[in-house]
Amino acid sequence: MATATQPQKKKRGGIIGEFKNPERRTAYLMVLPTLLIILTIAFFPILYAVVLSMTSSTVTGIGSFAGVSNYVAMFQNPAFIEGLYNTVVFTVISVFFEFIIGLAIALAINRAFRGRGLVRAAVLVPWAFPTVISAVMWRLMFQDQVGVINYVANALGVISQPILSDRTLLLISAIGVDVWKTTPFMALLLLAGLQTIPGEVYEAAKVDGASVVQRFFSITMPLLKPALLVALLFRTLESYRVFDLFWAMSNRELESLSTFVYTGVRISQLQFAQGNAASVFIFLTAFLLALVFIKGFGMQTSTED
């Protein structure tokens, strides 16, 4: 960290000065436990995962050096490819719909109206459910003996076999459940962003004769961009590590990247090293995604006022 300090004039001689000042010393002591927890329990293990993925490791520990052979085996493993495919399809489609519907809801409720509290409460209900439990609930509704959705879809002739016995239908259902569960949350985040846009800006644009569409694209979208990027990045990364939903909806049949890692740790001894390779893969790709949002789209990460 010492090298990160600017070469410009420093206040009171850098690191040493930092710790001589009692207020600053207290400040560091107060953040230290949190930093230690994060470094030892999140960042150290990811380095360990890198090591494990490069050796012929098993659930008992590190093995002999294996280079990138685990990664090669992982990419040749049909289960991994299926998991990758399902994860990407799931992430892209669910985040797309959550964003479109969430934005529509946020725009609609961005005003004072009767029953605002009720709407806000209803929005929070799906959010508060544990994901696995909402998956269990929806599974009961998709079920072929007592499930209302399966019954209706069958009566309408939309499906030819029970929903839960077909993997494509399962994936579609999982996307539906995710959209149901997290769209309200997306709407809340976007609403909070909308509320920071001062009303006068719109009034001024209206006076200048801007149409609704013009106002949306030249005022709402640019001013909403910071909140929008944060919401999108959060949701993308969360969908990308989907596990609970697939697990409980499909009775462990639907493969995702996360379920592949889990299989390596808890179910298949032989796949442990590949599971670690998948861990590293997930970490790096998630990191790249965040980087694209921050550098590529100019997402602000500053937390200072």
Partner: peptide, 27 residues
Amino acid sequence: LRFSFKSSVMTLILAISFFPGVAIIAP
């Protein structure tokens, strides 16, 4: 409180919200 590495500290803490938990279950 005032201290120099505040934004680095905050970035590190925030990075965890983007960190996939599944990546560390094996280690």
